[in-house]
Simulated scan of single mutants.
Amino acid sequence: MMKIRVGFGYDVHALVPDRALWLGGIKIEHTLGLQGHSDADVLIHAICDALLGAANMRDIGYHFPDTAGAYKDIDSKILLRDTLKLLREKGYELGNIDATVCAEQPKLKNHIPTMQQTLAEVMAVDPDDISIKATTSEKLGFTGRQEGISAYATVLITKN
């Protein structure tokens, strides 16, 4: 019998000057970047949390603590690759991802296909299994004031 599980992830990072903006594993030209211990890729972090949650394996901070020097400025694609490795060691495989990035600026729609392709390569899955959407918060709240970017992810994983 196939076991099917779902997981949900959320992450937020502040926008600050003098940092690169990494989203969905790609560098995007923008005047501000995301602040964090790693490269602060909110989309990848939300996906990692969703995957770990679906497999009942805690969260990204448990596996990759921001108190560990090894993760300082780390490329979040490495964290995603390692998260998939943990899941596969437990017998799970990715079904699909449905994710949303919430940011006023920059506009992300033209970057989404590259994000999908990049994430698919990191996870060794079909890009069609990764849905990424972009929205704004209509100038409301911290995202609306361009103080930060948030991301949400829902995943489905299976085990035979």
Rank of each mutant, 00 (worst) to 15 (best):
L156V: 15
Y92M: 06
E29D: 15
K90S: 07
G69C: 04
F64Q: 01
L86I: 12
E93Y: 12
I26K: 02
H37M: 11
P113W: 03
E138R: 09
E121S: 09
M2P: 13
I60Y: 12
E121I: 05
K27G: 09
I157P: 00
R145L: 15
L15R: 06
M115Q: 06
I132Q: 06
T67F: 11
G53D: 01
G95C: 07
L52T: 08
R5F: 14
E104C: 02
L79F: 01
R81Y: 04
K159H: 06
L87D: 02
N96S: 13
L32A: 14
L23K: 02
D128N: 10
G91F: 07
M123D: 03
R58K: 15
K109N: 14
P113M: 05
D129S: 10
G7F: 04
R5I: 09
A50W: 03
L52E: 08
F8H: 11
E147G: 10
G53W: 06
F64W: 03
T158W: 05
T135W: 14
K77L: 08
E89Y: 00
C102Q: 15
A54R: 01
A68T: 12
S38P: 04
G61S: 10
I132D: 00
G69L: 04
L79T: 03
T67P: 10
E121L: 04
V16K: 02
L51M: 09
K90N: 07
L86F: 06
K85N: 11
V101P: 00
S150K: 12
R58Q: 13
I78K: 04
Y152L: 09
K77E: 06
G91E: 05
S150V: 05
V155M: 04
T118W: 00
L140Y: 13
T83D: 00
K133Q: 13
D18N: 12
K27T: 14
L156N: 07
D11G: 09
M1H: 14
D41N: 05
D59M: 10
H111P: 10
L80N: 10
S38V: 05
R58H: 15
T67I: 14
A50C: 06
G61M: 11
P127L: 05
K77A: 05
I26C: 05
T136H: 07
E89K: 14
T118A: 03
